[in-house]
């Protein structure tokens, strides 16, 4: 095991050393990612402040949704967010170089970088989550703790899956990377919303197709005992692992199709 992970550890270690060695620039990146997180929070706050509740969520419940979903997305972004630079890698030939190395291509792409600067944004999400849990008087039972942890874990898995699925599609869309951004960053935006306000097509896309509702919204409803829409049971929040498996299935399919297309074999 140690020798299987050695290439990845060596690479990530070098990346982290390089990033934190440019102190001033790294500090600036940390601050700006903190500010971005705060502005996104302000958006939620401004909207829910104006009314009592939207789609069945009041401000404190919306904070829990934001806390779960945004923490998960930010961790995924920190770990694999650079995969949306795949078109640059393809143009520069970096991807061809991956093909010359004895590791799986996807593992190489994922470990080719890590964005430590997003740590502050994870911090914002996590702080909001804690505040939201306290504001809602969530009692610390084994099941509530488990649900929160499970939701963060599977939420991160779902979001990394989306990044990978988008990367696979970029083999076809080198010049239109913004197309996949609409799913990735549109998904991030959707994840902070109460899914009950969505129209049917939106439910199909962001409720189940790209299961963003399972990263924050549905677990929050289960956690806070709020009514669950879309004919799902009250315990729908516990279904997040299924959503993660589904998303990774899509991601695997997209990645395989994309690399096949790139190599020109039956794609």
């Amino acid at each position: 095991m140690g020798s299987r992970t050695r290439p990845y550890r060596a690479l990530l270690g070098a990346r982290m050393r390089a990033q934190s060695s440019y102190r001033a620039s790294f500090g600036l990146d940390l601050v700006s990612s903190l500010l971005i997180g705060l502005v996104e929070l302000a958006e939620v706050w401004v909207l829910y402040r104006a009314v009592d509740e939207i789609g069945g969520l009041d401000l404190t419940a919306a904070l829990v949704v934001f806390g779960l979903a945004d923490t998960a997305f930010s961790i995924a972004d920190l770990l694999v967010g650079h995969v949306d630079r795949l078109p640059d890698y393809l143009r520069a030939g970096t991807f061809d170089v991956f093909c010359l190395r004895p590791q799986p291509l996807l593992a190489q792409l994922i470990t080719s970088d890590i964005s430590l600067r997003r740590l502050t944004r994870v911090g914002v999400g996590f702080a909001v989550l804690i505040v939201g849990l306290i504001a809602n008087d969530v009692t610390l039972t084994p099941s509530s703790v488990l649900l929160v942890l499970l939701s963060l874990l599977t939420g991160t898995a779902i979001c990394t899956g989306i990044f990978v699925a988008a990367a696979g599609a970029q083999f076809f869309l080198i010049d239109a990377a913004e197309m996949t951004n609409s799913v990735v960053y549109g998904g991030r935006y959707a994840a902070n919303q109460p899914g009950s306000v969505w129209s049917r097509p939106l439910i199909a896309v962001f409720g189940f197709g790209v299961p963003m509702a399972f990263t924050g919204y549905l677990p929050t409803l289960t956690l806070l005992d709020l009514p669950v829409p879309w004919n799902l049971p009250d315990w729908a929040g516990w279904l997040a692992p299924l959503a993660a498996i589904w998303m990774w299935g899509l991601a695997g399919l997209s990645w395989r199709t994309g690399t096949r297309h790139y190599q020109g074999g039956g794609g």
Partner: peptide
Amino acid sequence: WWDLPLAESFRILAAIHD
């Protein structure tokens, strides 16, 4: 690795080829 010292490339590739 474009932004890393040359020595790092040796280290990483040694790990990659185990």
